[in-house]
Design a protein around this nucleic acid. Structure first.
Length: 272
DNA sequence: ACTGGATCCTGATCGC
DNA sequence: TGCGATCAGGATCCAG
């Protein structure tokens, strides 16, 4: 589900809901593990403490306290949703953060690929040291990225999804970005031309920004914290459109599994 | 040091 | 209608 745009939307929702000086009133735990064991004791130690800010790094949501950071990753199917008084626990609700007398933020996640971690602020840099740059940062260094990608042996599609190289691009947006850049996803990184890389970085920014502006993509179950779906799915050009006509040239949309993930492209627009 | 594949988990969908 | 196989927005671990 959630790639950079969806995580960004959830972050913005959480920022709005947990505006300072919101304090943690309590936690409810309905399960002891997600992808990892939930650090219940450490989270409970935050009761009474103020939430200072909510931010995003890659596809991670960071809830910042004075000395600690709670990290939430949504995996494939994680959601944080607001519940007011009298909410009924649903099947896949695993954790709830009580942030006012009768309000909770509930973490639900059917597949439980997501996780909640607790770390000291001082450990934050180390935690994320292997992550690539944020694609939407204003001073994203296109040349440095291109240089790094040029050396790789993998396909451009697989590399684009590698969080060590550049963060935030997942399976949907990788196909969409390459369509917009008119680059064949099967092409080896070393064969992609310099001007094609320029287009790829630019299109990555355009696609991700537009997806954020549209509230993300709702394919199966993505909802923001207020239960609303995104709109970007109606702008998808190739993802999940195998056998259909390209919306630009009427060529056929193809599908191939790369690195274990379904990959879509237009056989005509992205011939190269 | 890289790359590709298997793996974690539940639910929806597809084909027989 | 039923049932098994396959697939799904992610990231990590392991073998080659």
């Amino acid at each position: 589900m959630p790639e950079l745009p969806e995580v960004e939307i959830v972050c913005r929702n959480l920022s709005e809901i947990l505006q300072p000086p919101t304090e943690v009133q309590g936690w409810k735990f309905f399960r002891k593990d997600l992808r990892f064991v939930i650090p219940q004791k450490k989270l409970n130690s935050l009761i009474g403490k103020k939430i200072l800010s909510i931010s995003r790094r890659a596809k991670y949501i960071l809830i910042e306290f004075s000395d600690e950071v709670v990290i939430s990753h949504l995996g494939m199917t994680g959601q944080w949703r607001v519940e007011k008084s009298g909410w009924q626990k649903q099947k896949h609700d695993h954790v709830a953060l009580q942030y006012s007398k009768d309000s909770h933020l509930v973490y639900s996640d059917p597949r439980r690929f997501g996780f909640i971690e607790f770390i000291k602020k001082s450990e934050l840099n180390q935690k994320f040291e292997s992550l690539g740059p944020e694609p939407l940062q204003k001073d994203l260094d296109f040349n440095k990225l291109t240089e790094k990608f040029k050396k790789l042996d993998s396909t451009i599609k697989v590399a684009l999804m590698d969080q060590k190289l550049i963060v935030g691009v997942g399976n949907i947006y990788a196909s969409e970005v390459l369509f917009m850049a008119k680059v064949n996803p099967l092409k080896k990184c070393s064969k992609v031309k310099i001007d094609e890389y320029q287009k790829i970085w630019r299109c990555t920014q355009v696609v991700l920004q537009k997806a954020i502006d549209q509230g993300g993509s709702t394919i199966e179950n993505y909802k923001n914290s207020f239960g609303q779906s995104g709109d970007f799915q109606s702008y998808l050009q190739v993802y999940d459109r195998e056998g259909e006509d390209c919306l630009t040239c009427r060529g056929k949309i193809r599908k191939k599994v790369l690195g274990g993930r379904a990959t879509f492209w237009c056989a005509t627009c992205q011939k190269n």
